[in-house]
């Protein structure tokens, strides 16, 4: 069987699709973390990837906020394209830090593959996971 050898742009991985040149190290491994406060809850919106290269930055940004007194985090993963065990490790460290201070972290907006990784790792039963940010916020208010 012969197959046509061409790249379908809509099938390339998202990071390549967005025009990131290959082989440029850290720029290609992009993660952006935005913080927004709603009541006593800190919404952490993650865009991009949580891998061995980016996860430490994500973890230290969150740790900074927790050290600054934040106790209740909602991680909005609707912009998260990829996660590896390094990302899970950072999440667990953040959760442990919050738990020590009687805080909590919940999650929302997981893509099917990110949810799959959460399930395989046991994170889906360890944490509260909501379909949307609205639902996660509603749960916080209860």
């Amino acid at each position: 069987m012969r197959r046509v050898s061409r790249i379908q742009p809509n099938r390339a991985p998202k990071c390549l699709r967005q025009g990131h040149a290959k082989g440029q190290g850290k720029e290609n491994h992009c993660v952006k973390t935005k913080f927004a406060k709603k009541g006593d809850t800190l919404i952490v919106s993650v865009h991009g990837r949580l891998d061995a290269i980016t996860a430490p930055d994500f973890e230290s940004e969150c740790a900074g906020r927790i050290n600054g007194g934040e106790l209740f985090l909602i991680a909005d993963f609707s912009g998260l394209e990829y996660i590896s065990s390094a990302g899970l490790r950072s999440i667990l460290q953040i959760a442990k830090k919050l738990r020590q201070r009687k805080g909590d972290i919940t999650f929302c907006g997981l893509s099917s593959m990110v949810e799959n990784v959460f399930s395989i790792s046991g994170f889906a039963t360890m944490f509260s996971i909501h379909e949307s940010l609205d639902k996660a916020l509603l749960d916080r208010e209860r």
Binding site: R3, S5, R6, I7, Q8, R11, A12, P13, K14, L16, K22, G23, Q24, G25, K26, N28, H29, A52, I53, Y82, S112, M113
Partner: peptide, 24 residues
């Protein structure tokens, strides 16, 4: 790490594999 990633993913995308398989 990124060189290895591009090396494999460029090939896989070239072969037309979908996003879920590329993720795995």
């Amino acid at each position: 790490l990124d060189r290895f990633r591009s090396y494999v993913l460029d090939k896989a995308a070239h072969w037309g594999l979908d996003d879920d398989l590329l993720f795995k």
